[in-house]
Write a protein that binds this DNA or RNA. Structure first.
Lengths: 343, 343
DNA sequence: GTTAGCACTCTTGCCACGTGAGTGCTAACG
DNA sequence: CGTTAGCACTCACGTGGCAAGAGTGCTAAC
């Protein structure tokens, strides 16, 4: 059986309508709403074929049809068109990017917020992994009489404040002297490769105790940061979808969205700049089997600096969401490239 | 009509049962569950009296009774007892406090998380207002070639990283020289009182442009930080309560919990260290009229450093929640005092 | 190949009804 | 006079039947 043009048109009609209404759609409705120039009986025949092809499903006998995961897949791969962002969307994003381009972690969080606002779906981001980042600068700053803050700037453009309790008083001068030497010693080192050696401590005559404490704190921090950081925005949007109007289903999803492990799996490990779309069952997470995720990655200097995903019911507006995500990723990667190219 | 001992016992029984089951409770149930040595008919008479006193309500004729806001108020004010924290709760908190005592903002966030875990309600916190804080230390740290991070430590024990785009290259040496002089000039100044004066700029020969940019960024940051920061934890717990099992009600609450303005009102302006309990209608927020909030404040050096509140349905376990909050506040305020006393 | 017609299916909303929990009232009891 | 047993009454809730509506599949005619 061949998937002719008319079948495609009908499939598209079903998807469009179902995405908009969340109701199964019947042959008569299609004829009424979309001017295909054929009768409902013909549509019925075509729909029967589409069902045989596995592209649409009947939730129960004698009901209308809804798209199957396979149907969405076909739509996403071949039928869907990306649109350009509107002027409002564009300037909204421009502001967010220019206000946060200096610090990737803020940028990611703000972008997630922006996405959940623009799309009315839930956005998740995975933050740059500090673990693999290299230290670019370190500065010790007095905090209170007996403790200090070690400020770490990494090559992935993140800043980390690490509190270190020295249990003894110091002065600014000592701290800035130590900072100076520390910088010459550990700049360019990956957080995971930090080690306290005799040789290193010898560079800090009189301050060995302080330096040891600082380095220990750093080492702990970098090791602790084992997992990817995950940040979620717009979870409450989930409540707006009829597929989650059953409070039990809603609870399940909320639960899943709090499980970092699941979200990491969901965002996946790929590092492409392209938009990836995972539909329904294609993710292997039981609680998420009627959710889809549209995702992409950011890069700094060719290195993956974080991922971003938009989660919604499988019945989500793929075209709208993919277009927005596409626009965002292009703009951010562009801005990041301009920055590292210019700097 | 006098509120005798027996009426009190019945009221307590109703509250306890209703808090546990969320079902209206009838006279026969009370007789069966609580050994009061009287018949259901007597209980009925007493319940009728309690209703006249406005302490309990019949949701509809010929149903059991549930406590009214006034009933909860009486319970909270006169009947409820605080318990000590269990060893587990205590050591759970001890860890969180000692791990975060150095930075109030982290401490607050972690505490909010801990509360939502311990109580299964939703916790909100208002963070220390940087606006009124005094600058204790400032340090400029190189970020990338043309931008830097200004690290600000305030007297309310918070650290702020402010990115400043210099649009020109600098070196570490210059930055640390500037930091040194800046410190001598603006330490002790409140963020809001920062001004760029001729006199001040004269202290930075050759670096006026950089200093101006830094100060402008600081001034913007402090002014922008006009509102209190609000942080929410455990919102999904709301879905567990039968009173919000209607998705529309749940949506309303989620909406309200995202409105900063409402939360600020809810947390209120008081600065007492005592636990305060606001029951149902007593807060004047329409969407929250069947929620209660239990709240308290933290102090650093006699200054309010943030508030914390626990939100749940009016049918919440006041005794449990108030006890936990009480234990937390005592411990944190104690730890903070020890710190400022010892430092 | 397309379409009109028709019988059939399944969901949904509605109504009536019985059941159970709970009340209020009255009369009797100690 | 407080307490209790008994009883009639109310109301929410679950169940089953029923009609309406949407939609299908099949068949026969165009």
């Amino acid at each position: 059986m061949v998937l002719n043009d008319r079948k495609i048109k009908i499939l598209e009609a079903i998807i469009n309508d179902y995405v908009a209404t969340a109701e199964p759609i019947g042959s008569r409705t299609i004829v009424k709403k979309y001017d295909l120039g054929i009768s409902s009986a013909t549509v019925r025949n075509e729909m029967s074929d589409l069902e045989d092809l596995g592209l649409i499903i009947q939730p129960h006998a004698s009901s209308g049809r809804i798209p199957s995961d396979k149907g969405y897949r076909l739509y996403v791969d071949s039928l869907m068109r990306y649109r350009e962002l509107t002027d409002e969307e564009g300037s909204f994003l421009r502001d967010i990017i220019s206000n946060n381009i200096n610090q990737i972690d803020y940028l990611m969080k703000e972008t997630a917020k922006a996405i959940s606002v623009l799309t009315n779906y839930t956005a998740i981001i995975s933050e740059p992994q500090v673990k693999t980042a290299k230290i670019r600068h370190i500065q010790l700053v007095p905090f209170d009489d007996k403790s200090i803050i070690a400020v770490i700037v990494t090559d992935t453009k993140t800043v980390k404040n690490i509190a270190v309790n020295l249990e003894e008083a110091t002065d600014s001068k000592t701290l800035s002297d130590i900072s100076l030497v520390l910088n010459s010693q550990i700049t360019g080192v990956s957080g995971l490769d930090l080690k306290i050696t005799e040789n290193l401590l010898n560079k800090f005559p009189g301050s060995e105790r302080i330096v040891t404490k600082v380095l220990n704190a750093l080492i702990m921090e970098f090791q602790e940061d084992e997992d990817v950081q995950i940040y979620t925005s717009g979870t409450k949007n989930i409540l707006a979808f009829p597929e989650f109007s059953n409070i039990e289903r809603a609870k399940e999803i909320f639960q899943a969205l709090e499980e970092k492990r699941l979200l990491v799996t969901l965002l996946g490990q790929t590092a492409t700049e392209d938009i990836e779309i995972v539909i329904g069952d294609e993710n292997n997470i039981e609680q998420m089997k009627n959710c889809s995720i549209i995702k992409a990655n950011f890069h700094i200097g060719g290195k993956k600096a974080g991922g971003i995903g938009i989660i919604g019911p499988t019945r989500m507006d793929y075209s709208q969401v993919a277009s927005i995500l596409n626009g965002i990723v292009k703009r951010i990667n562009g801005a990041l490239k301009a920055l590292s190219g210019g700097g």
